[in-house]
Structures are given as structure tokens and as C-alpha cells.
């Protein structure tokens, strides 16, 4: 099986409460709230510079938080190093894809499994990743740096899935891709949704994200300003005005 099954129970899988982050004297996040329950597909939407990536980095302890609390599986994450959080089940598809350019497609996928998946199981998971992304199978021996942007994005997603994440965080997977690939990425996301993977999708592409998410949080200038069911937010005039007016960002 590709992903660990999760149950939608009382305690959220990920809970971000009143998060603030400073860069030097500048307050990048002031007041971010976020909650992801097991099995949910949650979108975090906001304009460029709103603080989405910083929120992700704070979740991973890749930046220090000024205040607030983050819990993963009910446990405060303060002081847990990034690589431990990953080993605890948080899979990440980082902004800008960040594939290992000088390694082959297969080597990239293996790295996704290295610290998370027992050796014997990795090949079965790789087979299911290849089912999801046939193009990666075609290009398996190719250096990741020679792939197109869309293919690299798929590789970054496949690499994260190789670790059988309990919670998958994706930071703007559609950024900078041709429309054809954007559609493809969202198709794959809705496939993943069907597998009941718990997903936190960070996106500027509000319309497409709200269409596939269960729940969404909107962040503006470092604050969570709106949250609710995705289907409600789509019809919310504030969201429509600020984010859906120009879905082609």
C-alpha cells in the first residue's frame, strides 16, 4: 500500500496555534492558525509573500517560532529537528521542487525512502509511484536536472510518497508550470485525495485548490484571516474578490 491509513478522529494530526515567526526585527507571521485532521485534504491559500512557506518551515522547525504552539499527533514539536519530524511521518514537497539534480530519477525516489521505508518495501512503493507517474518510469535513469519543470514536480511528489507519509505537505506544486502540467498536478492531487492521504496543500491557485480540498485556511500578511469548508469558501465574496478574480496567477 502506498500510504499509511489514517483515521479521522478527535485530535488533529497537525495543529498550528497562534504561530508567530520573526526574521530579524521583521514579523513575518503574526497569528497563524491551522488544523489538519487525519484523512483530511486541507488547503492553505494566500498571495505571494503572505507567509505560506514560512508557516511550512515553522511546522518543520526549519525556522524558529517567536511564539505559538505546533502539535503533531497531539505532541508539541518544539525542539524536534526537521529530519526527525520527517521520520515521524511528515512528507514534504518543497517550494521550487528541489529535486537532487545530479542524481537519477530512481536515486531521487530511493532517497525519499532511505530513512523512512524498510528496504524490502521500497521497490513495491516505487512501483505504485510509477503507476501514479508513468513519466517517471520512462525517465527512471535520467538525471533529475534534465527533466522538465512539470516532471520535476512529479518527481518531488513521488519522492515524498516514497516515505509513506502520514501527513503530506505540498508547497505550491503548481508554481511556474505550464497550464497542462498544472491540470495534471491537480488531477494527481485528487487521486491522492481518494487514497485518504492526509494532505496540507499550500497554493496561490485558490480556485483549483478549493475545488479539491475539504477545508481551507486563508492567510494574509502573516495571519489566518478566514477558514472553513472549501465549498463554502468558494462562494465567499471575500475570497472571490481577493483570490478568485484572477485565478491565472
Amino acid at each position: 500500500m502506498l500510504l499509511e491509513s489514517t483515521n479521522i478522529s478527535g485530535t488533529p494530526l497537525l495543529d498550528v496555534h497562534d504561530l508567530a515567526v520573526n526574521f530579524g526585527g521583521i514579523r513575518a507571521l503574526k497569528n497563524v492558525h491551522l488544523e489538519v485532521k487525519g484523512g483530511e485534504f486541507v488547503a492553505l491559500i494566500g498571495a505571494n509573500g503572505a507567509g505560506k512557506t514560512t508557516t511550512l518551515k515553522a511546522i518543520l522547525n526549519a525556522v524558529t517560532k517567536a511564539s505559538g504552539e505546533i502539535r503533531y499527533r497531539g505532541q508539541p514539536t518544539t525542539g524536534i529537528p526537521t529530519h526527525h519530524l520527517v521520520r515521524m511521518g511528515i512528507g514534504v514537497v518543497p517550494e521550487g521542487r528541489r529535486v537532487f539534480a545530479a542524481s537519477s530519477v530512481v536515486e531521487n525516489l530511493e532517497l525519499g525512502a532511505l530513512e523512512r521505508t524498510p528496504k524490502g518495501e521500497a521497490s513495491a512503493i516505487m512501483a505504485s509511484v510509477f503507476d501514479l507517474f508513468p513519466v517517471l518510469k520512462e525517465r527512471r535513469g535520467q538525471m533529475a536536472g534534465s527533466l522538465s519543470g512539470g516532471e520535476q514536480q512529479m518527481l518531488a511528489m513521488g519522492r515524498a510518497l516514497m516515505g509513506r507519509p502520514e501527513l503530506l505537505l505540498l508547497d505550491e506544486p503548481s508554481m511556474g508550470l505550464a497550464p497542462k502540467f498544472v491540470d495534471r498536478i491537480f488531477e494527481i492531487l485528487s487521486d491522492l485525495r481518494k487514497t485518504k492521504t492526509t494532505i496540507l496543500l499550500i497554493e496561490q491557485n485558490a480556485l483549483m485548490s478549493l475545488e479539491i480540498a475539504d477545508k481551507a485556511f486563508v492567510i494574509e500578511q502573516g495571519r489566518t484571516v478566514l477558514s472553513g469548508r472549501a465549498s463554502d469558501l468558494i462562494d465567499d465574496p471575500k475570497v472571490a474578490g481577493a483570490y478568485l478574480g484572477r485565478p491565472e496567477e
Binding site: L60, H84, P94, S103, E115
Partner: peptide, 15 residues
């Protein structure tokens, strides 16, 4: 090799 290529992303692999 992963760390040589990209330290930050290596951490995201659990390394």
C-alpha cells in the same frame, strides 16, 4: 551525496 547536493532538502528526506 544527498547532503552534497542540497543540505536543506536532504533534511526533508529524514537525513
Amino acid at each position: 551525496r544527498a547532503v552534497s547536493q542540497d543540505r536543506e532538502t536532504a533534511k526533508l528526506m529524514g537525513i
